[in-house]
Design a protein around this nucleic acid. Structure first.
Length: 337
DNA sequence: ATAGGGTTAG
């Protein structure tokens, strides 16, 4: 069953080409916009001028010693170069940390380039697949997976979760759902809380709140109980559709299960009630946020100011702007207008 | 170590 599943997935992947391969990289289509081969590595490098920091080698080295955080792509490439020259090579964990940080900066092509310099086939495959997914190149992700299987290696639940997310990023919800169901049947890679949460996001993206809630109910019967992300996603989706009563019910249900909301949950609710002009409810929610020691952000205040102005309560809106200033939250031009 | 969530007026 699993083998068949793998084969099906691999078969749907792009074909390989043996002539243009660089350090184990699957062949990329020539019309691709994300091709990062060795020879244009530097072209890519120099295409990030806004992120560049002029720093001497010693300063950079010091920065790396002081803080493991990579703040620019240039840093990452420099650190990587030196890591690759070290003998013995630094640990994979260290390489992973750097790749993860570059991915968080959303420089996915850079991650792919660095990954390929490592020649780390079979390890950290999920990082690579994730980057192709974020570049809307799920075909390449599937190629990578195919190659992975060819080497006799087994992916894990994280890999499949990443692929489901990849389909969703391309708005291919049916294929995401199909992969989810294959996971359910397969046995080895039972969907976990992230798998469910990801698919819930997919249904919400389509505005299919009913399907999302059904999936939430399914989670309750399983060991992976719904978590904050699963609830928050649906609450947000309901709010966007101005189904605020349902959203608030789900919110209460979540709280009663002991799941603590965060600033994202409250902002979704605030946006929902404000859409309906319910400024009193919005104010109550803002107070509740603060009472739970959650720090409201600029968006929470902004939507309230906007709603108060629309309701003609300019003085009250000015009061909220005052609160923002007191809290060191900078109101922008939109808020003032 | 690697996977999932949100938002900005007119």
């Amino acid at each position: 069953m699993l083998k068949m599943m793998m084969r099906n997935i691999a078969a749907s992947a792009s074909f390989y080409c043996s002539s243009r391969r660089w350090r184990g990289m699957p062949c990329l289509h020539t019309n691709s916009t994300v091709v990062v081969f060795a020879n244009n590595y530097f072209a890519f490098f120099h295409s990030q001028p806004s992120k560049r920091i002029k720093s001497t080698r010693t300063q950079l080295e010091q920065a790396v010693i002081n803080s493991p955080n990579i703040t620019t792509v240039e840093d990452a490439f420099n650190v990587f170069d030196r890591m690759l020259q070290k003998r013995p090579l630094p640990s994979l964990v260290r390489f992973t940390q750097i790749l993860t940080q570059v991915a968080k900066l959303k420089h996915y092509s850079a991650v792919i380039s660095l990954y390929n310099q490592m020649g780390a086939w079979g390890i950290l495959i999920t990082i690579l697949i994730n980057c192709y997914c974020h570049l809307n190149q799920i075909g390449f992700s599937l190629s990578v997976l195919g190659k992975f299987f060819k080497l006799g290696l087994e992916p894990n639940v994280l890999t499949f979760n990443t692929l489901i997310n990849g389909y969703l990023l391309e708005h291919r919800v049916p294929e995401a759902a199909a992969l989810f169901h294959k996971m359910m049947r397969a046995g080895n890679w039972k969907p976990n809380v992230v798998t469910f949460g990801t698919l819930i996001m997919g249904f919400c993206m389509r505005g299919n709140n009913c399907a999302a809630i059904q999936l939430l109910r399914k989670m309750e019967e399983r060991p992976c109980k719904p978590d904050l992300v699963a609830y928050s996603r649906i609450i947000d989706s309901l709010c966007k559709d101005t189904q605020v009563v349902d959203a608030l019910n789900l919110f209460s249900e979540m709280i009663s299960k002991g799941i603590a909301p965060n600033v994202i949950t409250y902002n979704s609710l605030m946006n929902g009630v404000c859409k309906l002009g319910e400024w009193k409810e919005a104010t109550r929610l803002l107070n509740e946020t603060v009472s739970k020691n959650i720090v409201p952000d600029v968006f929470a205040f902004k939507v309230l100011v906007d709603t108060l102005c629309k309701e003609g309560m300019v003085v009250e809106a000015e009061g909220v702007v005052e609160m923002m200033i007191q809290r060191d939250i900078e109101p922008d031009m939109v808020t003032y207008n």
